[in-house]
Every structure is written in structure tokens, then in C-alpha cells.
């Protein structure tokens, strides 16, 4: 499979990981065997890291609270940020963790059942770590778009029905 087709495959999967491999093969103009092998290979290479689902929890009875937390830390000699990052991402409530440029070092996103739960995580766990200098917690009020998917509005075809 060429790099171009491989990337096309990834773009399709990124939008719809549930698509079956037979259909993928049709869309890519490849054989199903090639598609299955390529996906297995990319899983092995760590290019495909998972097959997640985009969920708008707001619409369920199990609404969650999410927050972005900017964290300033003291990097450790020889380790940089990796050790402290690992200590933070091991908490299951942490949904993503990035090392970023700008005013702080790490950006943590976290899901909790309530504001109280997140407040507890920040005050009792995150800010008590030795390396953590400062935390700024920002609660997410509304999700408009997540993982490239607009959550707030449905697509509507506004075109004329028949045109030359």
C-alpha cells in the first residue's frame, strides 16, 4: 500500500472506526486482505493506537464535568517532563495530557462526575505532587466540536434538489 493510500485509510478510520474492512477496501480501491494487513501493521507500529467513539455525554443521564488544567512543573534532571507526565496520566480520570509551549508546561484534560470530584483531584492529587508548581483549572461549559465532529448541529443540505 502506498503512503498516500495508507494515509487515506487513516483519514477514513479517524472519522469512522466502525467501518467494515470490506467497505474500506471498496473505498480505497484495494483488496480486503491488503486493508486488514495494513491495519494490523499500523497497530503494530503504534500508528493506530485505538478505535474510540465520539460521545456527547451531555445527552445522557450520566452527564460529566470536564476541565482543562494548565500545570506548571519543575522538570527533573535527566528525565525532563516524562516522569512527572507519567505520574499524572496514570490517573484514569485524566483523558489526555500534552506537553505544550507557552505559559505553562502540561495541559491535562480530565473528566469527572462533578465539579467537586475534579476539585478534589486538583487539590489533593495534582497540586500536592512535589514537581507541580502551579495549576490553573478551567471548567468546560459546553462542547461544540470534539474529535473533528460538530456536536451541536446536524448537517442540513441547503442545495436546490436538482441542478445541471
Amino acid at each position: 500500500m502506498t503512503m498516500d493510500v495508507r494515509e487515506e485509510l487513516l483519514r477514513i478510520l479517524e472519522k469512522n472506526s466502525r467501518i467494515d474492512t470490506g467497505e474500506l477496501a471498496v473505498l480505497l480501491g484495494a483488496t480486503e486482505v491488503d486493508v486488514v494487513n495494513e491495519m494490523a501493521q499500523m497497530e503494530k507500529e503504534g500508528i493506530i493506537c485505538g478505535y474510540a467513539t465520539v460521545i456527547d455525554w451531555e445527552k445522557t443521564s450520566n452527564a460529566r464535568v470536564s476541565a482543562l488544567i494548565e500545570v506548571r512543573v519543575t522538570p527533573q534532571r535527566g528525565k525532563g517532563f516524562d516522569d512527572i507526565a507519567e505520574r499524572i496520566y496514570k490517573y484514569p480520570e485524566v483523558t489526555s495530557l500534552y506537553l505544550i509551549s507557552g505559559g505553562c508546561d502540561l495541559m491535562v484534560t480530565i473528566d469527572g462526575r462533578s465539579m467537586k470530584e475534579i476539585a478534589y483531584f486538583v487539590s489533593d492529587k495534582l497540586s500536592t505532587l512535589d514537581e507541580v508548581v502551579n495549576c490553573t483549572t478551567q471548567f468546560i461549559l459546553k462542547k461544540y466540536k470534539d474529535h473533528g465532529t460538530v456536536l451541536t448541529r446536524k448537517y442540513e443540505d441547503k442545495r436546490e434538489k436538482v441542478t445541471p
Binding site: D157, R159, E160, K161, V162, T163, P164
Partner: peptide, 25 residues
């Protein structure tokens, strides 16, 4: 235009799925 005639029929069927459009989605 031959397409015009067809357009008139389709516009009276609000629930029809159209594959008749000549412009990008």
C-alpha cells in the same frame, strides 16, 4: 432546459432523496 422539468416534479416531493445535484456538498 430538460432539467428544469424534472426539478419541478422533485420540488413537490419534499421527502425525496436527491442524487440530482450538480454542485459540491
Amino acid at each position: 432546459s430538460g432539467i428544469r422539468k424534472f426539478f419541478d416534479i422533485v420540488s413537490e416531493m419534499p421527502d425525496a432523496i436527491s442524487l440530482g445535484v450538480g454542485e459540491p456538498d
